[in-house]
Computed example of a mutant assay.
Amino acid sequence: MARPRAITDEALLDAARAVFIRSGPGATTAEIAEAAGVSEATLFRRYATKDALFMAAMELPPEPGWAALANALAEDPRPLRERLEVLATALLDFFREIIPRVMVLRAAGIDLSCHMTQLAEPPPVKGLKAVAHFFHREQRAGRVRPVDPEIPARLLIGAMHHHAFFEACGLDAHAPLPPASYVRGAVDVILRGVEVETAK
């Protein structure tokens, strides 16, 4: 009977990812093995080379999970503000996880733009369309004023990306804003707009 693996592939990749994000693509397999609590031999039994381990650990999801969430929330009976806060939180969580990976991949000299342009529908575009569709559904229901639905979709996605980018660059210490407060504030601004209505 085969001995059970001391560490799952998922846990091993989580440990490797954390080391690469902390130390960059130059992190050693010795560092990764120590973080994972295994020997370097175990690493190389699972992944033949450090490059193979790097690509597996830093792999980007084939599509953003929040695309499916946006479609599901379009059918959700909760108030619009509450649903948008759920969607914004999912966007923020996604970008907080993905942006550090992208930064390390770029540091390793990997050109993601070439890969994206070869896809029939790149994941970011699919995600944008899902959020735009959400706003379109809300317009048809009379809960959002008639504007190009891609505009509020881009505003929401961009706002969450910005917060995650500040965190990844260590800039949140200079302009601190708790994530939950940021989500509520961003959703409020998008829903209300920023122009003060004047009496006619």
Rank of each mutant, 00 (worst) to 15 (best):
P62C: 12
P62G: 15
P64F: 15
G65H: 03
G65V: 02
G65W: 07
W66D: 08
A68G: 07
L69T: 05
A70F: 10
N71R: 13
A72H: 04
L73R: 01
A74K: 00
E75N: 08
E75I: 02
R78M: 12
L80R: 10
L80A: 04
R81E: 12
E82D: 14
E82P: 07
E85Y: 11
V86P: 06
V86Q: 15
L87E: 00
L87P: 00
T89D: 13
A90C: 07
L91S: 05
L91C: 08
L92T: 03
D93C: 04
D93A: 11
I98V: 11
P100I: 05
R101I: 06
R101K: 08
V102N: 13
M103K: 14
R106Q: 14
A108P: 05
A108Q: 05
L112I: 06
C114V: 15
H115L: 15
H115D: 12
T117M: 15
Q118A: 15
L119G: 04
A120V: 06
E121N: 10
P122E: 05
P122D: 07
P123I: 10
P123C: 07
V125K: 13
K126Q: 11
L128F: 00
A130S: 07
V131C: 01
H133W: 08
H136M: 12
H136D: 12
R137S: 12
E138V: 14
R140Y: 05
A141E: 09
A141C: 12
R143M: 08
V144G: 05
V144E: 04
P146G: 01
P146I: 00
V147P: 00
D148I: 09
P149W: 00
I151K: 06
I151W: 09
A153S: 02
I157V: 06
G158I: 01
H161C: 08
H161G: 05
H161D: 02
H162S: 11
H162N: 08
H163I: 04
A164N: 06
G170Y: 06
D172N: 13
H174T: 12
H174S: 15
A175R: 14
A175S: 10
P176E: 11
P176I: 10
L177M: 10
P179L: 09
A180D: 15
S181R: 15
Y182M: 08
V183Q: 13
R184L: 11
G185M: 11
I190Y: 02
I190C: 11
